[in-house]
């Protein structure tokens, strides 16, 4: 296979970026998309050029490090996977593939396709935890939790924090990301004590970081590699309203 990649190159956060076009030849369809980029980078290095910087680590879809816009879609053309899980069999010989970084005010570009997502950490920091110190926790089976609640909590907890929801949203909203965590703790007995402050603090932090609001387009759900449902957003809205009304 042979493809042409059109990639966003940007020296650093202060510089202006632009698209650069590179041909990549001798690709086999078993290769992952990143292995194709590795191949491109290897040839760039050999020519003494700087390789394309992109975020990646586990290459098995769980660490949430990778993320890029491929042909206008977050994590590429296939639903329910991260960019690192994308394989070249999903493209055709001769394709031109356009690759861009996540674009959102709250995710400034560091270099090429690498963006700074520490805004996500700062939201988590404002309340994405249950306050329990190490040691002294009650027996794990002391409080039974219905399988349904545990499953809903797990659905939210499976968020990998990649930022695809933000990148794909026309408002750059982080509602899916934040609601997945709020929801996880809202349905668990352990999360009840801090339930109100958690949703209030996390929503405040989300707004302060420059993320937009939700206008119910559901683009986030469609592009989430873990297929997290917008039902979590609905739950967060209820939680937020309840917390504010009850003072």
């Amino acid at each position: 296979m042979k493809v042409t990649v059109k990639i966003w190159r940007q020296k650093d956060s202060r510089s202006k970026g632009s698209f650069q076009t590179y041909p990549v030849d001798n690709i086999s369809e078993e290769m992952s998309f990143f292995e194709m980029l590795d191949m491109l980078n290897e040839s760039l290095v050999k020519q003494g050029e700087k390789p394309v910087a992109f975020d990646h680590d586990c290459r098995e879809g769980i660490c949430g490090t990778c993320g890029m816009f491929i042909n206008g879609r977050a994590h590429g053309p296939i639903s329910g996977i991260t960019t690192c899980q994308l394989h070249m069999r999903r493209f055709n010989d001769g394709d031109t593939i356009v690759v861009e970084p996540w674009r959102a005010k709250a995710f400034p570009v560091i270099q090429d396709l690498v963006v700074d997502r520490t805004s996500f950490d700062r939201i988590m920091l404002s309340g994405g935890y249950i306050s329990i110190n190490s040691g002294g926790a009650p027996d794990a089976n002391a409080i039974p939790i219905s399988k349904i609640s545990a499953d809903i909590a797990m659905d939210g907890a499976s968020c990998i924090g990649c930022g695809a929801c933000v990148a794909t949203c026309k408002n750059s909203s982080a509602m899916l990301f934040v609601s997945a965590k709020v929801s996880q703790f809202a349905v668990l007995p352990q999360g009840q004590v801090e339930r109100k402050e958690r949703v209030q603090n996390m929503v405040t932090s989300m707004d302060e970081e420059g993320f937009g609001n939700c206008t119910n387009t559901y683009a986030c759900e469609a592009e989430c590699p873990k297929e997290i449902s917008v039902a979590h957003i609905a739950r967060m809205n209820r939680e937020f309203l309840k917390a504010n009304l009850s003072g």
Binding site: A140, N141, A153, M154, A157, Q190
Partner: peptide, 18 residues
């Protein structure tokens, strides 16, 4: 015990136990 207290959603059976 610690992990359950942190809100980690381990798999449970229909009786609500781990």
């Amino acid at each position: 015990d610690q992990c359950v207290a942190q809100g980690i959603p381990f798999a449970r059976d229909y009786g609500g136990l781990l």
